[in-house]
Design a protein around this nucleic acid. Structure first.
Length: 565
RNA sequence: GCGCCAGUAGCUCAGCUGGAUAGAGCAUCGGAUUUCUAAUCCGGCGGUCGAGGGUUCAAAUCCUUCCUGGCGCGCCA
């Protein structure tokens, strides 16, 4: 527990009948600094004691006596407000950050536990477009967040590398694939083959049967089908990898749907043994009527399995392999029902770990005038967006900081950071309307703003050019603008905690914006480097701590913190 | 038709599990730099928190009805 909250709780515990955790839960931070640093609302006590909260606050204030680090207690309306000793607070907070460095904000609550995170999971033979970005960056952030809490994390890219579309692709490739360029095929080529197939199939429906035949061959392990399928996969993965490298999104395993092909029969057998499966309209299903859900389809009437079947097999496999404490799927909210169904089936199969499976859903990305669609080619390619962002940043650098060294590297870090930050900063829940001008705006609450703030702090420290030490006079960090910032830095660990609990990386974005706002106000109000040595040392120490927190925060959401920009 | 999600300033969003005066950014208007990076900061403008009803000492937050938008609802993933 927070040292200062702890002090307040122990004061209150003596004078009320509430339990420690009840008190702690109620402690809040007043909306404005003048009111105090922490507050205890008296509404619950008011209910118990049957007295107005205001008079309880008054009475409590009279019988409570401030003990260090608490310096003042004041009743304001229904609240008992506590003031902390600013220099003790500052010393404690800043020294902690200074000592813990890159691990400030982390803890070990998850040590010994394993979390599996399924994210990105794109389909083979299709380009990654902007709407694929969310899963990747949210998943990556969740990965870092849980890592910071000591969890052992397993990032899985559950590739969409199975299904009838591969039969279609094989047919198209064999018929229209250009012999001379096959070696240099790209995802674009695969995509056009795919489109061509659908055009031709309209005129000649026999192609569909041919495609089904080829998919059957593939399932049966036919060497030619297998070789082509592997070829398509290689081409796609090569392109995906390029983007993952740009975004610095990491996976511990690339295990596609095809991998579970050999396991689904066992899975279906287990489901049958539990008496869960039945035939309906020629298909094999798990009836979920009693749970107010449509049935979960395991097998089509032509005997082929479906993705739900493979997902169930995958879940079993992951449990066997990783023995996870938590398994999460970072997948769009349009698949909510699907996950509800498979989690229910897992539960019905008797797996207690079904309750530890979580669908981390997120809103769709669409254009102002409608949805994105790979089929209609109405998408913005992820690579194009990243390149555009980098180029625009490059121009801004040229304009604002022409003497900067290594402009290309910085432009890349800032451009990509801007895209990641933009995608992460609204709550997962909400749909996002894609708009070039919004994504490529670099002022205000944006990634570049946070990075810029960081770079300015680095600049001060470079200019200072002396070892930073915590042996400073903390009495000099008492101004409101300064103290507000220090209090803000102290919140960082609890923000990570909340982000983890709610699987919500946007909390970290909001937090960073907040810290930067406080820092910039401080920066614009006071001069850090001056002739007054004592004051300089104290402020430099604060600057260094702020730099550290911004760096740690950006790092957790997968964004670089350049020293100059 | 049924289910899930959303509706807060002109636009994009915060508002921490019911609490103090609903906050930011963008846009717009006006200001701040002989000094640490102006990708910054300060101020003005801007709100019946979709609408009605209810619960409560207290509702943007909880319940309910309705409106609007998005998504989903057996052989795609």
């Amino acid at each position: 527990m927070d040292y200062f909250i702890k002090s307040i709780v122990s004061l209150l515990k003596e004078k009320t009948d509430l339990r420690e955790d009840e008190i702690e839960k109620r402690i809040e931070i007043p909306p404005v600094l003048k009111m105090g640093d922490y507050a205890f609302p008296c509404y619950t006590l008011s209910k118990i004691l049957k007295k107005p909260p205001n008079s309880i606050a008054e009475e409590l204030t009279k019988i409570l006596h401030p003990v260090s680090p608490i310096t003042g207690i004041r009743a304001i309306g229904p609240y008992v407000n506590f003031f902390v000793d600013r220099s003790i607070f500052s010393e404690r907070a800043l020294k902690k950050i200074h000592e813990e460095k890159d691990s400030y904000g982390s803890d070990d609550t998850g040590s010994g536990k394993t979390i599996v995170i399924d994210y990105s999971s794109p389909n083979i033979a299709k380009h990654l477009a902007v709407h694929h970005l969310r899963s990747a960056v949210i998943g990556n952030a969740i990965y870092h967040i849980y890592k910071a809490l000591g969890y052992s994390c397993v990032g899985i890219n559950h590739l969409g590398d199975w299904g009838t579309q591969f039969g279609q692709l094989i047919v198209a490739y064999r018929r229209w694939g250009d012999e001379s360029t096959r070696k240099t095929y790209t995802v674009t080529d695969l995509n056009s083959l795919y489109v061509k197939f659908h055009q031709e199939a309209e005129k000649n429906p026999a192609l569909e049967d041919e495609a089904r035949e080829w998919f059957k061959k593939l399932e049966a392990g036919d060497p030619e089908a297998r070789t082509l399928w592997q070829h398509f996969k290689d081409i796609s993965l090569k392109e995906f990898q390029k983007l993952y490298d740009m975004l610095e999104v990491h996976f511990d395993a690339y295990i596609g749907e095809s991998f579970y092909n050999t396991m689904v029969e066992d899975t279906i057998r287990r489901i049958k043994e539990k008496g869960l499966a039945k035939i309906s309209e020629e298909a094999l299903i798990v009836d979920l009527e009693p749970y107010n859900m449509p049935p979960c389809l395991l097998r089509k009437k032509d005997d082929a399995t479906l993705y739900a079947t493979r997902d169930i097999a995958a879940a079993e496999y992951r449990m066997r392999t990783y023995n996870f404490d938590k398994m999460t799927y970072v997948v769009g909210s349009e698949q909510k029902l699907h996950f509800k169904q498979i989690f229910k089936v897992l539960e019905l199969m008797g797996y207690d770990w079904a309750s530890r499976c979580v669908h981390i859903d997120f809103g769709l990305m669409k254009f102002k005038d409608g949805k994105m669609s790979t089929r209609k080619g109405k998408v913005v390619l992820l690579e194009d967006l990243l390149i555009e962002a980098i180029e625009r940043i490059r121009k801004i650098i040229e304009e604002k900081n022409p003497l900067l060294e290594d402009k290309d590297a910085v432009a890349k870090e800032v451009g990509i950071g801007a895209i990641i930050f933009a995608d992460l900063s609204t709550k997962r829940n909400k749909d996002i309307v894609f708009d070039w001008d919004t994504v490529l705006n670099f002022e205000g609450e944006t990634g570049p703003y946070v990075q810029y703030t960081h770079a300015r702090l680095c600049s001060i420290l470079r200019k200072y050019n002396q070892p930073v030490t915590g042996e400073v006079n903390y009495e000099l960090l008492k101004e409101d603008e300064t103290f507000r910032l220090i209090k803000n830095l102290w919140q960082f660990p609890s923000v990570i905690q909340r982000a983890a609990e709610s699987y919500e990386p946007s909390l970290l974005c909001n937090y960073l914006i907040d810290v930067c706002g406080n820092l910039n106000r401080f920066y614009n109000t006071y001069r850090v480097l001056s002739d007054v040595e004592e004051l300089t040392k104290a402020r430099v120490f604060l600057v260094d701590a702020t730099r550290q927190v911004i760096k740690n925060g950006l790092n957790i959401i997968g964004i670089h913190s350049p020293d100059r920009m």
